[in-house]
């Protein structure tokens, strides 16, 4: 009697169900109309099926975004689980679109679906990649900008996973500051 090995047919469950959103920059439509849910997944296999199926960020048009958020959290500041939070922001220069953008984005997704930030993974809401002419941006959003320990853990591990040089500081900004900023720059609450 042959007993099949479950390892071969059972999909590997993720800790969370995730939703991948796509934002298309269509000036004729409202912001929320331009935000579209692509698909949700909760296994490793379904993550790769989706990831392998869609365009890489470097191929998107200017003004477009990908957002991966835990199921039930909308990729916007106003969401209940975002409004008290903030984001670790990584700004890329133009050359990095060719060299780094796609691999940084994949690494970001692996960090999220793999729950790579120990207990601090609880604080993660999602991640966003913005494709912009002046320079692309990557960010990991967390739920509470006062949770310093969790935020610092996420920032340090994220920097390591992207192999960013130690001297290249990245900053964490609260959504509150970002949404109410007067000048072009938002002050950082933390940096690492």
């Amino acid at each position: 009697q042959v007993v099949a090995n479950p390892e071969q047919y059972i999909k590997h469950p993720l800790q969370n169900r995730w939703a991948l959103w796509y934002f298309k920059n269509d000036k004729t439509k409202s912001w929320t109309e331009n935000l579209r849910l692509i698909s949700k997944f909760d296994t490793v296999e379904d993550f790769w099926a989706l990831y392998n199926h869609i365009q890489q960020p470097s191929k998107l048009n200017y003004g477009c975004d990908y957002c991966l958020f835990k199921d039930g959290i909308k990729p916007m500041w106003e969401d209940e689980r975002n409004k008290l939070g903030g984001r670790w922001l990584i700004t890329l220069n133009r050359q990095q679109r060719h060299n780094d953008l796609d691999r940084y984005w994949m690494e970001t997704l692996l960090c999220l679906v793999g729950e790579s930030f120990d207990e601090a993974s609880e604080d993660v809401c999602g991640a966003v990649v913005n494709v912009r002419p002046k320079g692309d941006k990557l960010a990991i959003w967390t739920s509470n900008c006062q949770n310093r320990d969790a935020i610092m853990t996420i920032g340090q591990l994220y920097k390591e996973r992207l192999s960013l040089p130690m001297k290249a500081l990245i900053g964490y900004q609260s959504h509150d500051d970002t949404s109410s900023k007067s000048g072009s720059t938002t002050k950082n609450m933390y940096s690492v």
Partner: peptide, 18 residues
């Protein structure tokens, strides 16, 4: 409680397995 974590090597290996 327990947390289901996957390291990057495992995730990348899964990408290539049929």
């Amino acid at each position: 409680g327990t947390r289901i974590i996957y390291d990057r090597k495992f995730l990348l290996d899964c990408r290539n397995s049929p």
